[in-house]
Design a protein around this nucleic acid. Sequence first.
DNA 1: GTCTATAATTGGATAGAC
DNA 2: GTCTATCCAATTATAGAC
Lengths: 184, 184
Amino acid sequence: MGGAKGKTREAIADAAASLFASNGYAATSVREIAREAGADPAMVIRHYGSKEELFLHTMQVQPGDALRFDEPWNTLGIRIVEYVLDADDRLRSVYLELIRGSDAGRIGTALSAAHEDNFVAPLVAVLPGPDAELRARLVAAMVGGLMYALWIVEDETLARTDRADVIARYAPALQGLITPDPAL
Amino acid sequence: MGGAKGKTREAIADAAASLFASNGYAATSVREIAREAGADPAMVIRHYGSKEELFLHTMQVQPGDALRFDEPWNTLGIRIVEYVLDADDRLRSVYLELIRGSDAGRIGTALSAAHEDNFVAPLVAVLPGPDAELRARLVAAMVGGLMYALWIVEDETLARTDRADVIARYAPALQGLITPDPAL
DNA sequence: GTCTATAATTGGATAGAC
DNA sequence: GTCTATCCAATTATAGAC
């Protein structure tokens, strides 16, 4: 882990990230990754063992991508919606490709882990009140729903809708699960 | 369209539906479908033109699967959540495989169409009040979120949670978008 | 560490006899 | 309508020279 030793190794990872993001897992070949990286197909396997390993190594939610759940609860719904709306292309494609590849055992596991680590667990940790775990899991589901509509179904009308309007309508639904409901 | 003429044709469709549902699009081969149907691989192509055509022909939301949107609005949120929770294996796998295959052009289009025809359009038609289209699209997103959490991520904890509790927590969020908000 | 060459499979789809 | 035989393209992954 140091210096310029793994130059081609990094080039392969970069090329893979770019191609997996653009064309998806199935449509990206090891040959194509090697060509893009200026390396040899054999090196791709030599460095990462298999195409799936390389995919899992590359398509990960980075530490910097994580949403902060430690600020005031009464605006958390808004911040969560903004997190999805403001996601950059890389983060977006990571989730998108994990979802699309979720039938392959390891990739499905990686998606479950990302969902659990990045949304469910932090939410469970901060949510006050009863049924915290259930509410956290349903909030996480709603986040997934926004990703689903915008990134998978590609609801263009929704994507073109004024950002503030989407937040004004969707965030309260999240907030309703975040703020403990005395009546329930 | 009658009689016992297309016997193998139907056998192929049935085998394809079963295999696509169990193993997904990519992992299912034309040869396997033929074997399961007791037919010849060539017949699969002869009848349906291509594997993708067969997939699109097979993995469709049937008329009987459709949710009714014409009953009283104040319980629509509950009925929508129940629709997802009560979905049978076939309907579930149709959505699941459309989502997973959504990077292939035609399949992605089919998913968008199913989403639009089965959720967004009927909702827009019945929702009263302002921003009906935006609210309909966000309700559809929430439905997708529940599918996402239960079927793609396979949140086992959520799946094991008491049905009534899930409804009690998630349906109000949908209902909040369905019932016009005078303050907005 | 790197590359050439190729193994070993598998896939979808077609041609043409019956 | 049906089946036999096969084509052709593409894949991941490996073996072994340099």
